[in-house]
Nucleic acid binder design. Structure first.
Length: 87
DNA sequence: GTTGAGCGTT
């Protein structure tokens, strides 16, 4: 748990289905609160998603709601949500 | 058209 102040709340999202895009990611996390930014990491060589991405919240409320939930479901698949290494 | 541990820019 991070008690340090941060201007943005970023979460690392992994175990994403291949069919999930950044829009789907933001839509899912928007249920917890306002998503400031959502991005999926893509591979230039393959052109498909690497299977993980980042979600940034603008409110600690949304960040806490998403972080408090250890199990996330998207596209019928379980997602691994953790704190991002870098803000 | 494929794959599945990992912390970003397709």
């Amino acid at each position: 748990m991070s008690n340090f102040i941060r201007h943005t709340y970023k979460l690392f999202v992994g175990n994403l289905p291949w069919t999930v895009g950044q829009k789907e990611l933001q839509t899912y996390f928007s249920k917890f609160g306002h998503v400031s930014s959502a991005a999926i990491v893509y591979d230039k060589q393959q052109g498909f998603s690497k299977g993980y991405g980042f979600v940034t919240f603008s409110a600690s409320d949304a960040y806490n709601s998403a972080c408090n939930q250890n199990v996330h479901f998207l596209e019928g698949r379980v997602l691994s949500v953790k704190e991002a290494n870098n803000n």
